[in-house]
Amino acid sequence: MGEFGVNLPDAAATQRLGWRLGQLCSPGTVLLLAGDLGMGKTTLVQGIGLGLGIAEPISSPTFTLINEYLEGRLPLYHVDLYRLAPTQVDSLELEGYWDGSEAEPGILAIEWSERLVDYPASAIGLRLDTDPSGGRRATLTAGDAHISLLKKVVGDGLLADEV
């Protein structure tokens, strides 16, 4: 298991982190986004969309639950579980997005992922928190299969430290 930290002094840095993820993630990537309200989860997903070449504005799917953006390098599936109870989350059947059985393989970004009971072992965790020195801090975690990906993502012009 690898863990990397990235300081994000402003929304632009958060979007740049997303942009790198959008550029480098492969089909079938699942991103488990966590953090309190206002930490920048949607801003990060907007950056992912830019990295994928999606021109359509990306907004939070708080009320629609899942937004699909299909015109980029890969499809982007943006899920927001904020308004759901755990029993409602189970009924979404998100497995069809991460196993490719219901949707073309792409990037699945799940906000409020801590409400999930089940998710793929290969998922990348990304937690956004307030940084005591100002701005935000992203903590990215992944199994061995994605450590090299995370090194590329955080190593390009962003301050990163491997924990």
Rank of each mutant, 00 (worst) to 15 (best):
T139M: 15
L159A: 15
V45M: 02
Q23R: 12
P9A: 01
V154L: 10
M1N: 03
P120H: 14
D99C: 13
G106E: 05
A109K: 03
L8K: 02
P120S: 14
F4R: 06
Q88V: 14
G49D: 00
D36G: 06
G49E: 00
E56D: 05
D10T: 12
A145I: 04
A109T: 14
L92D: 02
T62D: 06
Y119R: 13
G47R: 07
L37S: 04
E93K: 10
L94G: 01
I124T: 01
Y77Q: 04
D99F: 04
L32N: 00
G157A: 11
I48P: 14
G22A: 14
R16N: 11
A85F: 08
D131K: 04
E102P: 02
R137E: 13
N7E: 07
L150I: 00
A123G: 10
I147P: 01
A12L: 10
L74M: 11
G35S: 06
A103I: 09
W19E: 12
G72I: 03
G125P: 07
L140V: 13
S133A: 13
A160L: 07
R83S: 11
L108I: 12
T14H: 05
G135L: 07
R20Y: 10
Y119A: 15
S101T: 11
G157K: 15
L126S: 01
A123W: 09
L37H: 15
N7I: 08
D118I: 13
E104H: 10
K152L: 08
L74Q: 12
G18Y: 07
R137F: 06
D36T: 06
W19K: 09
A142W: 04
A121D: 09
T141H: 09
G125I: 15
A11F: 09
E102T: 15
E93W: 13
L33V: 04
T62E: 07
G5A: 07
G96L: 10
A34N: 15
P132T: 09
A145R: 04
T87K: 07
Q15S: 03
A145G: 15
I124Y: 00
Y82L: 09
L32A: 00
L8M: 02
P57Q: 09
Y69F: 13
G47T: 03
T130L: 11
T62N: 03
G28V: 10
G53L: 06
E104Q: 14
D131Y: 04
G35W: 00
L159N: 13
A138D: 05
A11D: 08
H78G: 10
L50S: 15
C25W: 04
T62Y: 12
S113H: 02
I124W: 00
V153R: 01
Y77W: 04
R83Y: 09
A121Y: 10
A123I: 08
L81P: 00
Y69L: 07
A123C: 15
E111A: 15
G157Q: 13
T43V: 02
A103N: 03
E111S: 04
D36E: 08
V163Y: 08
L116C: 14
L70P: 05
L70G: 05
A121S: 08
V6M: 00
G18H: 03
G40I: 00
N7V: 13
D36W: 05
L32K: 00
